[in-house]
Simulated scan of single mutants.
Amino acid sequence: MTAADIATTTTREGSVAERLLASSATLSYDPSVEVDWDSPLDPGHHGASPEWSTLYGTPYWQELSESQRAELTRQESASVACTGIWFEIILQQMMLRDMYTADRTSPEFQWALTEIADECRHSIMFARGAAKLNAPAYLPKRRVVELGRLFKTIAWGETAYAAILVAEEVLDVMQRDWMRDELVAPFVRTINNIHVVEESRHMKFARDEVVKRMQGAGPLRRQATALLVAASAYHIVTSMVSDRAYAEAGLDVARAKREAAGNEHYKSMLRSSCRGLMEFLHSAGLLTGPASAIYRKANLL
């Protein structure tokens, strides 16, 4: 669906926020109840679909035993979850700032608070999931953490919502695979299912906000927005799997990093997951030349 299609549909059917509020009232989850937190972790279960491992298909992967592969995907899954928490905290701050003086009676204001409440529950859910996977508290590199502080401070309307969209779209395709894979631990599959269902509403709102806020944007603003969004996407995607995850899985970190960096299968999976996102950014005028170069460097294009 193009940006123009989204705008037309919104006008015809009422505001996106109104429809999302109704959907949220009908279908939302309480992770503290829905997820089986009490069952013991089966060491034979993976934390993610093996095909989504950063080492899948490499010579190193071929040398690993099945138990080592399962442990690696559990640590990678926990790292992705912890990176998700980091960015969810950023986006909550950006949305709160965006709604600071908004019309309290509007569906958009009410939906924004609903989305923030969802993100709080998701962050708790991811934190408990990482702990259940016997993983440490992964964080992006210090430089990226500090860049995140800067980004959440300077990001304006459409930049914030486009960055939200980029982060969630990448996770969406990945987690749809994980939640259907019987190799993945049942509680992880439930976590992924909850996140996919509820984030689909967040992505709809983010797309609508990007379209509305980019209407009439001049070339300088469009270029700046495109560049900032691409830069945030690069740091999010390259931070999903921490180097420490390889150490926690008992692997040779230097070799794992080297083979992951050259893993064409993983790069292809990332590009495939972002096909729809790139089409949307193009339709919104946010896939500029400099931005495209950054997306290629992050293996998203």
Rank of each mutant, 00 (worst) to 15 (best):
A7E: 12
T9K: 11
T10E: 15
T11A: 15
E18F: 08
E18T: 15
L20M: 07
D30I: 09
D38W: 07
P40V: 01
D42I: 05
S53H: 05
T54P: 02
L64R: 11
E66W: 13
S67A: 13
S67Q: 13
Q68H: 03
A70M: 09
V80I: 15
A81N: 13
T83M: 08
W86E: 12
E88A: 01
I89K: 09
L91C: 13
Q92P: 11
Q93K: 15
M94S: 15
M95G: 12
M99T: 08
M99L: 10
T101S: 12
L113V: 10
E115N: 06
H122P: 04
H122M: 04
A137N: 12
R143Y: 06
E146R: 09
L147G: 07
L150G: 04
K152R: 14
T153A: 10
I154V: 15
W156Q: 14
G157K: 00
T159Q: 07
A160Q: 02
A163R: 00
L165K: 05
A167H: 08
L171H: 03
D172W: 14
M174R: 14
R176W: 12
R180T: 13
R180D: 06
E182H: 10
V184G: 01
F187P: 07
M203K: 11
V210P: 02
G216S: 03
G218A: 05
R221V: 11
R222C: 01
T225D: 01
A226W: 09
L227N: 11
A233R: 03
R244A: 07
A245L: 00
R255C: 12
E259V: 11
N263R: 13
E264W: 07
E264A: 14
H265E: 04
Y266H: 10
Y266F: 14
K267A: 03
L270F: 06
S272F: 02
F280Y: 10
S283A: 15
S283L: 11
S283G: 11
P290K: 05
I294Y: 00
A298F: 06
N299K: 05
N299S: 09
L300E: 00
L300N: 01
